[in-house]
Design a protein around this nucleic acid. Structure first.
Lengths: 126, 126
DNA sequence: CTAAATGCAAACTATTTGCAACGAT
DNA sequence: ATCGTTGCAAATAGTTTGCATTTAG
């Protein structure tokens, strides 16, 4: 593992946030001011391909990265904000129902985050 | 609904495929040769925002569009190919476990599609 | 000394936007 | 006549790539 790889790995896994490449880049820049965005992209991809981090894709949002610890996501339908949830582990039941040997699964639950719910209410009252 | 909107809606919902905007565009072009890509994007977005179709985002893939009929997806980890599956409906149990009033959910199960599995095997044998 | 990682710029893909012309009410 | 839709071109966002240079083992 190189300096940046390790750094990026720790930024991603040592936080409960869901950071975009841009955000990771900003954070690394504090410590290593001459890093460039492409390097972050390269390392993040390397980590992802090595199965060390998780990539979270949501429609109309840049990809975000996450630690592997088992959990699911609550996604705001409107602003894309992510929050962690721990719904029951579906592995066994997927295996039973699908028979397929699958590698992993990804469960996203859509909702309106508190902020966006507020905005919706305000709209109604106008 | 305009001509294109209706057409696009039928292309998406009348098939079990998971088409990209590019593919929808190609298909429409047969019937209406002077349609442009941007129009397809606009209409697909309109339909999506109206809640009439589903958008399927997978890492490193262009977005694909799908009918609403309840089903989940099997996603090839390697080539991104999509297949439909009907895993048990999680709505009730999500509501029970999360308490949150959520809008919908999205379950993707990753696997290696037959083609990609073959390729993996070939690699091993070299 | 070698191989891999980095910085940098340019390229690319997917998608969106602004605007003038068009078409349907 | 008006307003939304289309065609078109240009812009943007996110991401990847090629290559010369640097770095680490």
């Amino acid at each position: 593992m190189t300096k940046y790889e390790r750094e990026i790995y720790h930024i991603i896994t040592g936080s409960v946030k869901h950071l975009t490449v841009e955000q990771i880049y900003m954070e690394i820049k504090n410590k290593y001011p001459k890093v460039v965005l492409a390097t972050v992209y390269n390392n993040v991809n390397k980590l992802w391909k090595a199965g060390l981090i998780r990539k979270v894709s949501v429609e109309n949002m840049p990809d975000r990265y996450d630690r592997l610890t088992r959990h699911d996501h609550l996604v705001c339908q409107r602003c894309g904000r992510l929050a962690d949830i721990s719904f029951e582990d579906l592995t066994v039941s997927l295996r039973r129902q699908l028979g397929e040997d699958f590698l992993s699964y990804d469960l996203k639950v859509f909702y309106l985050c508190p902020d966006c719910r507020k905005q919706e209410k305000n709209k109604d009252n106008i």
